[in-house]
Amino acid sequence: MKQSAENKISKTRMILVLPLLVFLMFLTSSSTLPLSQEQAQNKTSALETEIQEPVYPGGKQKLYRFIATTVRYPLAAHNQKMVGYVVVQATINAEGKIGDFKMASPAPNIFQEEVIRVLKKMRTWSPATQGGAPISSTYLFPVHFTYKDANDETFSAEKPNLKALVKSVSSESDNPVYRADEILVVGYKQP
């Protein structure tokens, strides 16, 4: 008698749970139904417009390490205790080559030349892509040259409004625009 009561309870549970399982299976299978032609076209056009940022070999940390170890405070600027804030605009073409250097903000030529010297030494990047196809992009490199004297007093140039600068360059460029983080270069007074 005990067994038949347990069998009835078990069958009742099965009857109650079975419709719930069927409903859950329906829900999960409906999310994997084939896309309509319009939905497929919308998904394809979204992928075609998706733009991936260019990547320096090894990523941003390698980029910053390369710049930090390659850039030098120009000796003439150091001797004159000159400071400057340079923003160099460069194009990374569809082959990943960096070039077409322009000044995105005014700065003393001596600092501009140093930043461009360093950027010209860069390895080939993985270019930006749109829908998987390589495209040209514009990259801004802000470099701040400051000076620290023998008394530990720091002299620095006025920092430009980088957000406004990116917006301005974006409005003038057909390419997507990216910006590196600020790179700080400090010249020290030798005792």
Rank of each mutant, 00 (worst) to 15 (best):
E48C: 02
P191Y: 01
S170M: 04
Y64V: 05
Q61I: 05
T32I: 11
E38G: 02
A128T: 07
Q3V: 09
G131A: 03
N175M: 14
K2N: 13
Y188C: 07
T91W: 09
G131F: 05
P176D: 03
K163P: 03
F141H: 07
I67K: 03
A77P: 02
K60D: 15
N79Y: 01
A40Y: 07
S170R: 09
G132K: 03
G132W: 06
S36W: 02
K121I: 00
V86Y: 05
A180K: 00
T28K: 06
P57Y: 04
P191A: 09
K148G: 07
M1Y: 08
V55K: 08
T124P: 01
D181E: 15
S105N: 13
Q190L: 13
G96S: 07
V166W: 11
A150T: 10
T138F: 00
S30Y: 11
N79E: 08
V185Y: 03
E95S: 13
P19F: 06
F23L: 15
M103W: 05
E50L: 15
E114M: 00
A77D: 00
G187E: 07
K102F: 11
L27Q: 12
D149Q: 06
V169N: 12
K159V: 01
K8M: 12
E38S: 10
L119Q: 06
H144W: 10
L21Q: 01
M14I: 09
I92G: 04
P127G: 06
S173A: 14
S137G: 03
H78M: 06
K81S: 09
K121T: 08
M14A: 14
L27W: 10
L33T: 13
V87P: 09
Y85G: 04
Q3G: 08
Y56I: 00
G99Q: 00
S136R: 04
I110S: 01
R65Q: 12
S31N: 12
Q39V: 02
T69G: 13
I135Y: 00
A157S: 11
Q80S: 10
S30A: 14
E172S: 14
R13W: 14
N7S: 12
M122E: 10
T124I: 14
I92N: 01
P34I: 01
Y85H: 08
